[in-house]
Amino acid sequence: MRNYGKVYTGFWTSEDILNMSEDSRTLALYLLTCPHGNMLGCFRLTNAYASDDLHWDVERVSKAFQELCTKGFIYRCERSFWVMIRRYLAWNQFENPNVGKAASKLFNTITPPEAVKALLATALRQFSPLFPASVLDEFGSSLKPFENPLKLDMETRTGTGTGTGTGTGTVAKSAVEHASHDSVKQIFAYWQEVMDSPKSVLDANRTGLIKKALQSYSSADICKAIRGCSKSPHNMGINEQRTKYNGLDLILRNADKIDRFIALDAGNARPTAQSETIEETNGRIMAEILGSTTVDRNTFDMEVS
């Protein structure tokens, strides 16, 4: 347990912080200074622990966490409750090589999901020159996810960013490609975690599906659709076939599917009648998702364990 956490005075005048709700600002400050944190800014924190420390109910904590994820302040694995403060290492540079060595020992002992640790490795490469580079060799080139993903996503679609083109509001080609590249990888990593499919590969088909969805939806909404699918018993394998229908080919097939899964995540899907049997419930859900009562197994993006 650390004795203190550093917060710059600029925290209170940052445009990103000022655009947050009061609860999210409070939670952000708590994450920067809470006793559960460490020198890497990557630690496990359940809603219950935060609720107890802040004297908030769990639902209030959950909503604030969701906003911080949406704003790009943190990355959080909702399955394991590991939190990574995206720019923590930029704000908390290691003071000398000995501190860097201590950080490497901590890095080797923490056990977040692989995707979270890979993101942490990227942050260490980008922000921590005193961290032993050899420790990070196993993570390869990794991602560069430290811009605000929603801001980049919006600039990509609307052309409101600052670019090198001659027209007003033109986004530079490299910025667009960078935004798309990072968003695709982040969304796929989220799908891997939520669906517990770490060995899946980001191939050309999945990349195309995510890029197409990003033309109409934000990264946050696509992740909500993924999470919504994970809340469907039928899609997660509780069906007569005992088969999971949770691939990106299904979730992102078209706008109707994405909207349905977002609604399911928000708890706004049509309620199930008490008189329905399990079989009837599964049939109704599948009919709503597919738009018909016929299931063509060849159309599903299924993972084989």
Rank of each mutant, 00 (worst) to 15 (best):
T109L: 03
D153H: 08
E67V: 02
Y217H: 06
H178C: 01
L264F: 11
G5C: 13
T160Y: 06
C69W: 13
K185A: 11
Q93M: 02
A121C: 05
M286S: 09
R2Q: 14
M20Q: 05
L252D: 09
V184A: 04
L214E: 00
G10F: 03
R227T: 04
K63C: 03
T158I: 08
W91A: 11
R86I: 12
I258N: 13
L248D: 04
T293H: 09
S24R: 07
A121Y: 10
I222N: 02
L106K: 07
T109W: 06
T109H: 02
Q186C: 06
E59Y: 13
L31Y: 01
D137S: 05
G291C: 09
T26M: 09
P129T: 08
T294R: 12
S134N: 11
A273K: 15
G237H: 06
T170K: 00
E276R: 14
K144C: 14
S128W: 02
R44G: 07
A28Q: 07
F94H: 07
A172C: 03
M236P: 04
V295D: 04
I258W: 13
N148L: 00
N254V: 05
N47C: 06
I238C: 03
I222D: 02
P149V: 03
I210L: 07
T164M: 06
I262R: 12
F300D: 02
C69T: 12
L18P: 01
L27P: 08
Q93L: 09
Q126D: 11
F261N: 14
R284K: 14
G267L: 13
P112V: 00
L290C: 13
N47L: 01
K101G: 00
N246A: 11
Q93E: 04
T9I: 09
N282T: 07
Q192F: 03
L120E: 01
L89P: 03
D53L: 05
G267Q: 05
L54E: 08
Q192E: 11
G208S: 09
P271N: 04
T293Y: 03
R270Q: 09
S134H: 11
T168G: 00
A123E: 10
E138R: 15
V99P: 04
L150D: 14
D203K: 06
N98F: 10
I278R: 15
S218E: 03
T46P: 08
T243V: 08
G140Q: 07
T156C: 04
A175K: 01
A269H: 15
F65Q: 07
P233I: 11
A102E: 14
R25Q: 15
D153E: 13
C42A: 05
Q215I: 08
E78P: 02
L264M: 15
A133W: 06
V184T: 12
T293K: 12
I278V: 12
I17K: 09
